[in-house]
Design a protein around this nucleic acid. Structure first.
Length: 862
RNA sequence: GGGGGCGUGGCGGAAUGGUAGACGCUGCGGACUUAAAAUCCGUUGACUGUUAAAAGUCGUGAGGGUUCAAGUCCCUCUGCCCCCACCA
């Protein structure tokens, strides 16, 4: 008895730094965060986008994990078996840069970062099942990344093609886009980056374009804007493929157009400089000019070529084609604005009806032929001053004259088909996914190139193709792997001839395109996963991550899921049921507006921010946390002073989850104060409760008791609804309201106890440590996190009286109290008879009374 | 150029077409204290008003509209933010 009392007694002061480590340990011992193995509860899979182990977590990262954890804890209390795993997206460029700059092996650098960041995560009270931790750079994981690649290869969806890379001519190395600055120079050598063609691996995501687009409709739990971004990225255009026969060659040039209705207005064709026909159609007179132009364009980096406001430049090839609709000969040009990768790499020029074509025709003195006029204007303008791009009626279009342009699209496609010169076609902006990286720190592509057999898959039994460890990182030359002849040279698995390994590694987006599947069966050493386990846990019920992954990561993951489903490994089409894209966390930065330099906050006098070097006044900004801006706030900055619960509440309360959040120390304190108030409520109650006795629910309640009970159950309802809608900020404010109602209440009875216990239970998903401590102090032995989340009792929320708003001509004039049971007529009578209404009506005639039951009465008076 | 979003007190932000500013922060006043911190109480959109109240007027970027009633719906404008971008 004595022992138990001691165990239960509560310190008078809230000491997070004492209670948090205690519960962390107890929970670990009890295995509270382990994923249940039972199948009798409904499953819930809560997932945060896994971090890149860059070295340090800041509160921008932890916001993500806290949101997921609140959802996971809530779902557990609501009777679900919950899977909440965590892992590391551990391949990638920064590790390799660290190796180049500091001589640390990427594996070591990454492992150290993971150790540190995992410690940081542990502080936050996240209910993560660490038994399922995965690390993408571990051979246990990338073995299966390679296995999945081979599935694509066997399905014919992984193929090789020549493609351009950023080439540093000084270091003789391939650069990632991030390693090329805005001026198109290499980050290390400063050399002007060139384009170079290499044979590289692609995944045929375009085969899934239509499905990836259509299935967006299934994703009712995704933000609209993410779905729109994906749809725009896939970029479906409906139009026609038309062929223009070449003069002097038994061949034609195919183009894609969304405007087949303008076919009679085609006065020239333009090819991309890389187009294979370019050199064949060029006439001797133009050869020199064309060659020079092709050289110039191909030497330019992607960045330069697509730079904004570039004039559209081109040269004539001298070659000519026939417009098969008009029968006229039209010139063929090449120009830098035509993209070889999109459509057919060739476009038809319709200057009269396309703004860009108009501009190009003007500059290059090409003919402009009007073939569409507005409906109310049947005469084509003699000298058009701009392109007419709207729908209209066809003119100068032979048999199609007078036809509305919308109708003409189909009619002209029909004619093209009949004449054998074209057909309807759907074109996507989405291109196949270039997955080759000429880097070390990634999963090696498991292919062996055999002079006899071509590219051959590494046999599954030989996986993983391990990364060799003894490698030098100079940042020069082709990839480190390509320099290791003993690693490269192997016999062909198929015929035994001497052959060579592929030296490219895979894009890290591949690693993250399937990690959410592996968590369902993370330890499996025999297979990529057990389909039964994956089909049980997946799809992810709630995915939480940054908006920056709205396109690529989410699209690739959807693609992998659909592909693996087609391979018979999965029985679902979409990996993520609900998606929450949380906003960034911003913190104060100090920037010198003259030099653009950022100054670390500890070198700045906040009252008078000046550059410590130059004395110039600094600009104070809120910006996304980043190393280069010195404004990253590590979670320890909060946890070491106020504890994890305060840190969690702050990030949840300060802003709605989708919005950016501004770091503010005063607001952090506000949350700490709130937790202190909750602590005191419970503490004082446990001190007084001996005298209050163990009354059960009184048979008849006083008004004060009824009011308190209503506040309790209203809070349950509001918190539940807000959590369901992911409005964590208002959910926390409801907790505060309940806490305020309890401290305002004079009761110290059974109703009050119900209120205190409800508050602690409602608080548990948000602030797990303090909730556990207080729950135990209230005399409970089982963890608060194993309790049922409270359910609102509708009876308790019934009001005897309601506040009725009185409006006169729509203007609120005040309120009156009326019985809640009053019907429409009674409400109107109460309102009309009220002193308040009489004062404003003053004998005027009531023309109309609008009664909104439970809310208001509005009198329209003359 | 295309697509999307947003504009509410000193600040972060609340408001199924129905009392705008919940909740919190800050500021101000007070209590407690020798004092401070912590804590507690009051107050904190602007204006008018009175000894004090009561009360009133205005107010959600600007202008118009729909409605008994608009922060919310519609139109025009304006400012800011994000994504994509020479996509034929």
């Amino acid at each position: 008895m004595h022992v138990q009392q001691e165990q239960q007694s509560l310190e008078s002061r809230y000491t997070p730094l004492a209670i948090e480590p205690k519960w962390q340990q107890i929970w670990a011992e009890q295995g509270l965060d382990q994923t249940p193995a039972n199948q009798d509860q409904p499953k819930f899979y809560a997932l945060s986008m896994f971090p890149y182990p860059s070295g340090n977590l800041h509160v921008g990262h932890t916001r993500n994990y806290v949101i997921t954890d609140v959802v996971a804890r809530l779902k557990r209390m609501q009777g679900h078996r919950v899977l909440q795993p965590m892992g590391w997206d551990a391949f990638g460029l920064p590790a390799e840069n660290a190796a180049i700059d500091r001589g640390i092996h990427p594996a070591k650098w990454t492992a150290e970062n993971i150790t540190h960041m995992k410690d940081q995560l542990q502080l936050l009270g996240l209910s993560i099942d660490w038994d399922r931790e995965i690390t993408t750079c571990s051979p246990d994981y990338y073995r299966w990344t390679q296995w999945i690649f081979l599935e694509f290869f066997q399905a014919g969806l992984a193929y090789q093609k020549e493609s351009a890379v950023n080439w540093d001519p000084v270091d003789q190395t391939v650069l990632a886009n991030e390693q090329v600055d805005n001026e198109g120079r290499s980050w290390r050598s400063g050399a002007k980056v060139e384009r170079k063609l290499l044979r590289q691996w692609f995944l045929k995501i375009t085969d899934y374009a239509e499905q990836l687009l259509n299935d967006l409709d299934q994703l009712s739990g995704w933000p609209e804007r993410v779905k729109l971004m994906q749809a725009n990225w896939i970029g479906k255009s409906v139009g026609a493929y038309l062929e223009f026969p070449l003069i002097g060659l038994a061949q034609s040039i195919g183009v894609f157009t969304t405007r087949p209705d303008t076919a009679y207005g085609v006065t020239y064709l333009v090819l991309a400089p890389e187009h294979p026909l370019t050199r064949r159609i060029t006439t001797p007179a133009q050869e020199a000019a064309v060659e020079a132009f092709v050289q110039e364009v191909t030497a330019q980096s992607e960045l330069e070529r697509t730079a904004e406001d570039r004039p559209k430049r081109g040269v004539p090839t001298g070659g000519k084609a026939i417009n098969p609709f008009t029968g006229e000969a039209i010139p063929i040009w090449i120009a830098d604005y035509v993209l070889y990768e999109y459509g057919t790499g060739a476009v038809m020029g319709v200057p009269a009806h396309d703004t860009r074509d108009f501009e190009f025709a003007r500059t290059n003195r090409l003919p402009i032929e009007v073939v569409i006029v507005p409906e109310d204007q049947r005469q084509p303008p003699a000298n058009p001053t701009e392109a007419y791009t709207e729908p209209g009626v066809l003119v100068n279009s032979g048999q199609f004259d007078q036809m509305p342009s919308d109708q003409a699209k189909a009619a002209i496609i029909q004619k093209a088909q009949t004449d054998g010169i074209g057909k309807a076609r759907v074109q996507y902006r989405l291109r196949d996914w270039l997955i080759s990286r000429q880097r070390y720190w990634g999963a090696p592509i498991p292919i062996i190139h055999c002079p006899q057999c071509g590219p051959v898959a590494v046999p599954a039994a030989d996986l993983p193709v391990q990364l060799p460890e003894n490698v030098s990182f100079s940042g020069r030359g082709v990839s480190p792997l390509a320099q290791l002849s003993e690693w490269i040279n192997v016999p062909c698995p198929s015929c035994g001839t001497p052959a060579q390994r592929e030296t490219d590694t895979m894009d890290t987006f591949i690693d993250s395109s399937w990690y959410f599947l592996r968590y369902a069966d993370a330890q499996n050493a025999q297979a990529v996963f057990d389909p039964a386990k994956v089909n049980d846990w997946l799809p992810v019920d709630q995915y939480v991550g940054g908006i920056e992954h709205a396109i690529l990561h989410l699209l690739y993951s959807r693609f992998f899921t659909k592909f693996l489903r087609d391979r018979g490994l999965l029985n679902f089409d979409e990996p993520f049921q609900r998606l929450l894209t949380q906003g960034m966390v911003q913190a104060t930065t100090y920037q010198n507006p003259v030099t653009g330099k950022y100054v670390p906050p500890d070198q700045v006098d906040r009252g008078n921010p000046q550059d410590p070097d130059t004395g110039e006044p600094l600009e104070v900004l809120f910006e996304k946390m980043s190393k280069s801006k010195y404004n990253g706030i590590p979670p320890e900055a909060v946890t070491s002073k106020y504890g994890a619960d305060t840190a969690r509440l702050f990030t949840l309360f300060k802003a709605p989850p989708e919005k950016d959040l501004e770091w503010d120390a005063a607001d952090v304190e506000g949350q700490f104060r709130f937790l202190n108030r909750v602590w005191r409520l419970v503490y004082e109650f446990t001190q007084n409760s001996q005298s209050a006795g163990g009354d059960s629910q009184p048979t008849s309640m006083t008004k004060a008791q009824k009011d308190l009970r209503r506040a309790i159950h209203t809070a349950i309802q509001a918190v539940s609804e807000d959590l369901e809608a992911h409005q964590f900020n208002t959910a926390v404010s409801e907790l505060m309201k309940l806490s305020n109602a309890l401290s305002d209440s004079a009761c110290q009875d059974a109703v009050y106890l119900e209120g205190i216990e409800t508050l602690v239970l409602l608080l548990a998903p948000f602030a797990p440590y303090i909730a556990e401590e207080l729950w135990q102090a209230l005399g409970h032995e089982q963890s608060v996190h194993r309790q049922n989340f409270p359910k609102a009792d509708p009876e308790a929320m019934v009001l005897d009286e309601i506040t009725l708003v009185i409006q006169i001509l729509g203007k609120t004039r005040g309120t009156i109290q009326v019985p809640a049971s009053a019907n429409r007529e009674e409400l109107e009578r109460y309102a009309r008879d009220s002193e308040l209404a009489q004062r404003y009506i003053q004998g005027k005639e009531i023309k109309k009374a609008i009664v909104v039951p439970g809310k208001l009465v509005n009198f329209v008076v003359a």
